[in-house]
Nucleic acid binder design. Sequence first.
DNA 1: GCGGCCA
Length: 226
Amino acid sequence: MMEGASGGNDVELVCKTLQFEHKLFYFDLKENPRGRYLKISEKTSAARSTIIVPLNGIVWFVDIFTYYVNTDERNAFSKELNLDTKVFYFDIGENKRGRFLKISEASVGRNRSTIIVPAGSLGEEGWAAFRNILLEINDEASRLFIVPNQQHMETSEHLQGLSDNVGAGFISGHSAQSVAWSDMNLDRLVELPPQGEIGSLGLSKVIRADQKRFSLTWEATTGVIS
DNA sequence: GCGGCCA
């Protein structure tokens, strides 16, 4: 209980914020003797809720957000992401204010914690902005910890996580090893460069460029947006 | 000027 629970001694490596509509999201990449994790907090007027994502889960969050950005509302399914000992649930909801993505973290012996990310009034620009922050963090993290063979080491740890039965394109756990990640991206994300590996190269730039002139069709490159 | 989440 003493160690790792409160995170009081944890080192902050990267801190970012995203303000969207009436919410403020904090992204804090932290490190403690147990490992590295991303703390994502959502602060509303009074309330604040937080989820803790293991470092190796960021790429999955990026991928899942991309899925919801690119998938038509009618075809968007709920998703589950298993990471280490916790499970993240992704669900689409809607009310008068608009659509939102609910992310719930369930872990043993702890209360379920949830954050809600608005889709935005234009389409999914809120989710896209959220995803871009995750990309930036992943990018900076890969620069911080110069892992020699990150993309060649056994990725079974990563790939065990995504047990997902709905929607097209997601692998189910134990399929291939390092091949599956790039296959999945090439399958699902048309805008990704063939190199595949998220967090390296110019991927974040490509997507960040779309942020300001976001269009509902997303893949449209006309640039005619008023 | 938001407001979701149902523990």
